[in-house]
């Protein structure tokens, strides 16, 4: 069992006009096996939350804490967080020219588990995971995210999720830019990871569509840098029908 606790998190970002407050007191707790959906309007700070947990240097934590099984995540470097079991599927995965997917995945696996994976087992796992995500085997020879379509980038993120086996994963708009078929494939991947490793998931999305494939246990409405309301799956349906107007008026 793992538990990620985000308490009273305040985050600002440095802009040319000085620091800008984005998160204003976020409280969220995610445990193994649970799926939390976070929904909210553009610019409400969802990606900022994801990046802050992962440790992106651009964001400054001005107050609050993040704990993983009681350990202070804010004191860890980015790679230490990853090795502690946190994973962020990026909204915009980054290109790494000249580095093949196969080299990248093997290097990451080695870094996460502290030793190089046994070759035969690794090749087998990789093949299976790629087949499950309907990825061509020659995909591994391409350079990381270079020239990938939107759908390929997202599948590649989920491939990493399945191979690196984190304890808690944050998926930042993994559903955006996917057609229905790709959405199903990607959702299956997340569900497999949940079933196989009891993964805890924080799923950031604008739409209920993905929630039909990945059942959330909790839905959090994110407005102006904090959680405005939370509830069960039924809250997502209501948000889709009514939008965020109610919350935006309240926060204005």
């Amino acid at each position: 069992m793992s538990k990620l606790e985000i308490k009273n998190l305040h985050v600002s970002v440095n802009t040319d006009q000085g620091p800008k407050q984005i998160l204003r007191g976020v409280d969220l707790t995610i445990s193994s096996g649970e799926t939390h959906a976070v929904m909210g309007p553009n610019g409400s700070g969802k990606s900022t939350l994801a990046y802050s947990v992962a440790g992106h240097p651009k964001y400054e934590i001005t107050d609050g804490e993040i704990l993983l099984d009681g350990a202070n995540v804010l004191e860890m470097s980015v790679d230490e967080r990853a090795r502690a079991g946190l994973f962020l599927a990026m909204q915009y995965p980054v290109e790494v020219p000249g580095v093949s997917v196969s080299n990248f995945l093997r290097t990451a696996k080695t870094a996460i588990s502290g030793e190089a994976p046994a070759l035969r087992e690794w090749v087998g796992d990789l093949k299976t995971a790629m087949k499950n995500l309907r990825m061509d085997s020659d995909f591994t020879e391409r350079n990381v995210n270079e020239g990938f379509s939107g759908g390929e980038k997202k599948r590649h993120e989920i491939l990493q999720l399945e191979l690196l086996k984190p304890r808690i994963a944050i998926l930042d708009e993994t559903d955006s830019g996917l057609d229905v078929d790709a959405l199903k494939i990607v959702s299956e991947g997340v569900n497999r990871a949940k079933a196989n490793t009891d993964l805890g998931v924080l799923l950031i999305t604008h739409y209920t569509r993905i929630l039909r494939y990945i059942q959330p246990d909790f839905v959090h409405v994110f407005v102006a840098g904090k959680v405005a309301e939370q509830g069960g799956p039924e809250l997502a349906e209501r948000l889709e029908a009514e939008g965020y107007d109610r919350y935006l008026k309240a926060s204005a």
Binding site: A54, G55, R83, V96
Partner: peptide
């Protein structure tokens, strides 16, 4: 950041990027 978020420390990440480059 992307590479570090996948568990590589700063030196390993830089090596990979330079080799790739």
């Amino acid at each position: 950041f992307y590479l570090q978020a996948r568990g590589l420390n700063e030196t390993e990440a830089k090596k990979l990027v330079v080799r790739g480059f």
